[in-house]
């Protein structure tokens, strides 16, 4: 399996996700600068976390206009899997590869803490190593993670089973009290209709070994390697 990580000015989790992928793939990722016009042949494209272009105008808005994004969008439409983490999720919504938008957190605070999530489905290339309904612990670190979509889009996501993860409590209940940022329906991540594009606010690459405090994020990368190798 070969994975490519897109690097924007202001990305700061590009190396973390590259290390996470290298751990499970056994080979380094291609790091692709945003100013390039094409992503070389690859099995997975990752849009990493960070603050691309200083979050100017809107988080992810400038990065979505980068030269490389034309090819990322074309490759995603041709079926190449894309994983967008945190700022990467914002870039995916700004590029219209995923619907909706990520707005300022409900309480206007930057949130940096572990949260609990339910794995809504375990039959995708990203989640096959998890169990459906399982509660996992993954860190969040964002200011603009409040997922918003209009009612039609939201109904479509729910009816088509495209919600990937929800903020939950230990029992897997998705109450308002377990919602850190005001996201509609406690949404922490969503899929594209073909389940090949995943955007999520939490950072799975930050929990890939016990030295980092846990391995709940590692299973996402292991799922990808198993599906794409």
């Amino acid at each position: 399996m070969q994975a490519s990580v897109i690097v924007f000015p202001g990305s700061n989790c590009d190396r973390d996700v590259a290390v996470a992928l290298q751990e499970v793939m056994g080979r380094p990722c291609d790091m692709i600068w945003h100013g390039n016009s094409t992503v070389p042949q690859t099995d997975l494209i990752v849009l990493p976390g960070g603050f691309s272009f200083g979050d100017y105008l809107r988080s992810g808005a400038m990065a979505a206009q980068s030269p490389i994004m034309k090819d990322v969008v074309a490759k995603a439409k041709a079926g190449v899997p894309v994983l967008g983490i945190c700022n990467g999720f914002q870039v995916l919504t700004e590029s219209s590869l995923l619907p909706g938008a990520l707005m300022r957190n409900r309480d206007i605070k930057f949130l940096c803490k572990d949260v609990l999530l339910t794995v809504e489905r375990a039959d995708t290339i990203f989640t096959a190593k998890y169990k459906q309904g399982e509660v996992i612990r993954i860190p969040i670190a964002h200011h603009d993670g409040n997922y918003f979509a209009d009612q039609d889009t939201l109904s479509q996501l729910e009816n088509d089973g495209l919600v990937a993860f929800r903020y939950a409590d230990k029992q897997g209940q998705t109450e308002a009290t377990s919602n850190p940022n005001g996201s509609q329906n406690n949404i922490a991540g969503i899929y594209s209709p073909d389940l090949k594009v995943l955007g999520l606010m939490p950072h799975p690459e930050r929990l890939i070994s016990d030295q980092l405090g846990g391995q709940d994020g590692r299973l996402m990368f292991e799922s990808l390697v198993e599906a794409l190798s």
Partner: peptide
Amino acid sequence: EKLIANTVI
């Protein structure tokens, strides 16, 4: 439409 506003929100 292209950049300055996000017409979703």
